[in-house]
Design a binder for these strands. Structure first.
Lengths: 218, 218
DNA sequence: TAGATTGTTAATCGATTAACAATC
DNA sequence: TAGATTGTTAATCGATTAACAATC
C-alpha cells in the first residue's frame, strides 16, 4: 500500500527499503565515515545508485552535487522519516518459542520499542519470569492496554488465536500490530498491521539451493 | 533474481510468496480441511485469486476445474517445490543476542534446518552451553565445516565480521548462507545468500504509524 | 575552472489483475 | 446437465534503470 507524505505518494517498494537504508547508514555512522556518494552506498547495499537517489527523492534533497551525502545527516534524515524519535509502549501476546526468543532479544528496544508486558493463556506459565517480565493472563490484557496506554501489540500466538487477540488489542486502543502468526489479520482502517515471518527467508534459501543449478545467469 | 525451473522462468516476486503459501497451507492441513478454492485461499491470505492461480501455474497444475484444490495435495506440492524433503546440516556463527534467540528458537528444525554447531570469537563465551550446543571458537570453524559436511551457514555476527565469516564458510564448502548481519555479502556464483532482518518489519510499522493519517485510501 | 555527483525525467522492464475459454 | 472454478492470455499498473541537465 503506497503512503502519502504531504503532497507526495511514496510507493510501497520504497517503504520496504527504508529500513535497509537505516541499517547500512547506522553501520557507516558507527565507523565514523563522513561522506559517501550514491554510487558507493548503493554498491555496499547491492542496489543501483539510480534506485537509491530515486528513493530518497520521495522525501527531499539530502545530498550535494559533486560531493555526495554527509553520512550523519542522511542517517538522521532516515531516522526522522521512519519516526524513530518516538518510543512506543508495547505488549507481546503468546509466550511460546518465538515469543521467548523475541523477549530475550534486545535489538528492538534500541529502535524505540518499549516492551511493557507479556501475556499468555496457558496457566502453566502465567507468573513465570522471562528476562525481567512476568507472564500475565490474557484475561488481564484488555484492561491493561487502556491503563498503560499501550500503542503496539506483538502477536506471537498460534494462527488460531491471532485474530481474537488482534480484536482485543484493537478494542484496547492499540494502533499498530506486529504479527508473527501465520494468519492474515483483519482490522479497522486506522490500525496498521505489519507481518513478519522469520522462517520465510530460510524457505527461500532452500528453494534457491534446490534449484541452484538452474539459476538464471543475469 | 528470477529462477529457471525446467523450461519455465519463475519471477522473483513469486519465489518470495512461496513461503507464505507454505505457512497458510500448513495451518489448513492441521485444521483438517479437505478442499479449498483459489478464491477462499486468496481471501485468507489477503491476495487476489488471480495472483494465487498465476503463481501456482509456474510449477504445474494442482487444481481441478469446478472443484478447487485438495489441501493436502497442494501442501505437499509446495513442500516439494521448496525442497523441504531434505535436511540441511547447518552452523551458526555469532553468539550474541540475536544468535542466542535463534539457537533457542525451535521453529527452524521443523523446516529441515539441522543445527550442528555454534561458533563465536569471544573467549569469554567459548565453551558455554546454549540449548544443548557448546560454543566453539571461530578458529575451529574452517576444519569443522569440511569434517561435518556442513551445507548452510547462519551469520549473526556484527556487520564488520560478516564478510570474513562468509569467506570462511564458502571456503569450507557451504552452499547456502542465511545472513542476519546488516552487511551485503559478496560470493561466488554457486553460493546462495539469503538476507533476513527481523527488525525491518518493526521500522516499517513505525513509518506507517507515523504517516498513518496520510494513508492512501484505496 | 574542471570534475564529480546530485535530483529528475522518460523509457524499459516486471508484476498484478481482469476476464474468459476450457472443463470438472 | 448446470454451476463452479481452474489455468492462461492480454491489458493494466507499478517499479526500476539509464541518461543527463543542473550545479556544487
Amino acid at each position: 500500500m503506497p503512503i502519502r507524505t504531504g503532497p507526495v505518494v511514496v510507493p510501497a517498494a520504497v517503504i520496504k527499503r527504508l529500513p535497509m537504508y537505516y541499517r547500512y547508514l547506522q553501520v557507516l555512522v558507527d565507523e565514523g565515515l563522513e561522506r559517501i556518494s550514491s554510487r558507493e552506498l548503493s554498491q555496499l547495499m547491492g542496489i543501483t545508485s539510480s534506485q537509491l537517489r530515486q528513493d530518497l527523492s520521495y522525501f527531499g534533497e539530502f545530498g550535494q552535487q559533486g560531493y555526495g551525502y554527509k553520512v550523519t545527516e542522511l542517517y538522521q534524515a532516515i531516522c526522522e522519516i521512519l519516526g524513530l524519535e518516538k518510543q512506543y509502549k508495547t505488549v507481546l501476546v503468546g509466550v511460546g518459542n518465538l515469543g521467548r526468543a523475541l523477549i530475550n532479544y534486545q535489538g528492538f528496544s534500541r529502535r524505540g520499542l518499549n516492551l511493557k508486558g507479556i501475556f499468555d493463556n496457558n496457566p502453566a506459565i502465567i507468573g513465570e519470569n522471562i528476562n525481567g517480565f512476568t507472564v500475565r493472563s490474557v484475561e488481564e490484557l484488555r484492561p491493561y492496554l487502556q491503563k498503560e496506554g499501550i500503542q503496539i501489540g506483538v502477536i506471537t500466538t498460534p494462527a488460531s488465536a491471532a485474530q481474537e487477540i488482534a480484536d482485543i488489542l484493537i478494542a484496547g486502543g492499540v494502533t499498530g500490530i506486529w504479527n508473527f502468526a501465520p494468519q492474515h489479520i483483519s482490522t479497522l482502517e486506522d490500525v496498521i498491521v505489519e507481518n513478519t515471518h522469520i522462517g520465510d527467508g530460510l524457505l527461500s534459501l532452500f528453494f534457491k539451493m534446490k534449484h541452484q543449478e538452474r539459476l538464471e545467469l543475469k
